[in-house]
Amino acid sequence: MLSGLDLTVAKGESLVLVGQSGIGKSVLLKHVIGLLKPDSGTIEIDGEDLWKASPRDRDRLRRKFGMSFQEGALFDSMSVGENIAFPLTRHTKKSKKEIADRVAECLELVRLPGIEDKRPSELSGGMRRRVGFARAIALQPEILLFDEPTTGLDPITTDVVVKVIEEMRSRLKPSAITITHDLKVAFSIADRVGLLSGGKILVDMTPKEFEHSKDPRVAAFVTGDSELAPPEAEPERRGAQKPVEAHV
C-alpha cells in the first residue's frame, strides 16, 4: 500500500497528511508507531531505528508517542478514569493521588472535566475521541499521532475537537502527525500539509500554499471536484515496492 514514501517531522512541528479514503493514511500512522513493520525501509525516532531496537527499547520509544485512534479505541472494560490512568499505572511510579490528579488535569485539557467514572459506552463519538486524546497525552509524549480525529463528527463537535488539538499543541509543544481528509481541520492545525497518493507523499507545503496550489492533484482535492482529479496512481506491486522511510 505504501511504496517509496519518505517522511520527516521536525521537533514541535505539525504535519497533516490528507488523501482519499483507502489510500493508506492510517497504515502510514501504524508504521510510524510500530504497529506495522515495513517490508523494507526504516522508521527512525530521534535517530533510533524502531525495528532494529530490542522489544524493550521499542516500548521505550513508543512511550514518546501518544496516539489517538479513529473511534477512540477506549478499553471498554474500564471507566474513563481508568483508561486515562492506564499508561500512568503501567509506566510510572506515581501514587494513586498523583494519578487521579493527572487524570483530572488531562480531562480538563480536553474540556471534559469530572467524567472519570463514566463508561466508554456512555460517551458520544466526540467525547470518546477527546477521552482518547486525554489518554494519549497522559504521559506527556513528545510526539502526537491523530488518526482521523474528526471523521463522522458534526461541525460543532469538529470545531470543539480542533480547538482541543490546538490547545494541546500550544501547551505540550509536541511534534504531531495528523491524518484527515477534512481540509478545514488540516488548515487549522498544520504547519505543513502533505497529500498522500499512490503509496507516497506527492506534495508537502504550507497550508496557504496547499490551499492555493495550481497542482491539479491538489486543486482537485481542495475543490472536491472528481472531474479535475487525475487517475489515481496505483502503488507498486509487491516485489517492486520501494522502501518506506519515516523520521520523527
Binding site: 510500530g34 516500548d59 485512534f69 478499553f75 503501567r90
Partner: peptide, 18 residues
C-alpha cells in the same frame, strides 16, 4: 476479537504494553 476490531489491542501496543 472485539478488542482487535475496535483497535483496542493496537491501543495497548501504542501505550507500550505487550
Amino acid at each position: 476479537g472485539s478488542m482487535r476490531v475496535t483497535e483496542q489491542i493496537d491501543a495497548l501496543v501504542s501505550l507500550a504494553t505487550d
